[in-house]
Write a protein that binds this DNA or RNA. Sequence first.
DNA 1: GTAAACATGTAACAGGTTACATGATTGT
DNA 2: ACAATCATGTAACCTGTTACATGTTTAC
Lengths: 170, 170
Amino acid sequence: MSLRHALLGLLSDRRASGYDLLKTFETSLANVWPANQSQIYTELTKLAGAGLIAVAAEGPRGRKEYEITDEGMAELRHWLTEVPPQRVIRSDVLLRVFFLGVLSPEQARAYLADLTDLSRAGHEQLQRLADSVDWDEGNLSVYGRIALEYGLRFNAMRREWAEWAAEQIR
Amino acid sequence: MSLRHALLGLLSDRRASGYDLLKTFETSLANVWPANQSQIYTELTKLAGAGLIAVAAEGPRGRKEYEITDEGMAELRHWLTEVPPQRVIRSDVLLRVFFLGVLSPEQARAYLADLTDLSRAGHEQLQRLADSVDWDEGNLSVYGRIALEYGLRFNAMRREWAEWAAEQIR
DNA sequence: GTAAACATGTAACAGGTTACATGATTGT
DNA sequence: ACAATCATGTAACCTGTTACATGTTTAC
């Protein structure tokens, strides 16, 4: 149920069309809550049907600009403050670790070495992003910076863990 | 597609019934790849249909013990070594962070404080688990310990980040 | 003129959740 | 006798992915 809240969250900042929202998902939200074109348009129609957003303006090429309604804002606040976050996250990365005993120690270490590289690359990509953005004083800037810091710390943690784990094998 | 690999992984260690596998999912795999009864039985039927597992014995109450086939082992090894892990993980925890600007600074800090508590509790729960298990010399023990260490480090990282983040607000 | 970008919609399928439905065996 | 546990199966529904389908506007 979080795609709808992601859309509500984006529309709480400014009105936008499905196409605009798609671009945002492809850039800033891609690492946190990926969504594709099909899903976004379908969900926008549902949100409009439920009265949480409304068409504020129509433009060329059938463009429909949506804005969040009071009901939508209430739902967004409810989700932010009352809905308990998901406790577990499915991780195929970690699931594989459980079964590395099926492989040879060399293959298992290779898997962890790949994870090390992946984490290093992820860290570097986020660092480049952090360097390229000019962080102004706005709210999106404050919280965007906090989210990005999470990504940096996560990748650093995972890289160090994967290096440690490789040493544990044999 | 990872549920099937979780099942193959468990069956690569020892033969088991759907019921046995369900118990394992409720305990050791609950934090990595949760799955429910309905899903497990459905997937076992599919796996058997695809020849990746086979019924090795039948017991009382319609119990069916499955064992992994050579084809199943090949598929498991393929997944472990060749299939690239998922790059992004959907995180509703982090998604909320993007939109905390909608709330008051007090409410935003309260959300982060809840995350701090959640992470601390998660860490403690895993630490208790680590203390209660007697880690023998087997493979499952080695890799189980490595997976658990990931959980500990993840929760520690998230707690420190949430504490840091709360300080950034105002 | 035509390619790129803008813009939306829907159908088919895969994976996951909740709920319903049923019955056998074991331990007290 | 009765409760707890063992044991499986399936239907309805929701979310997400891939692919197909269509048409407009802008820039060169």
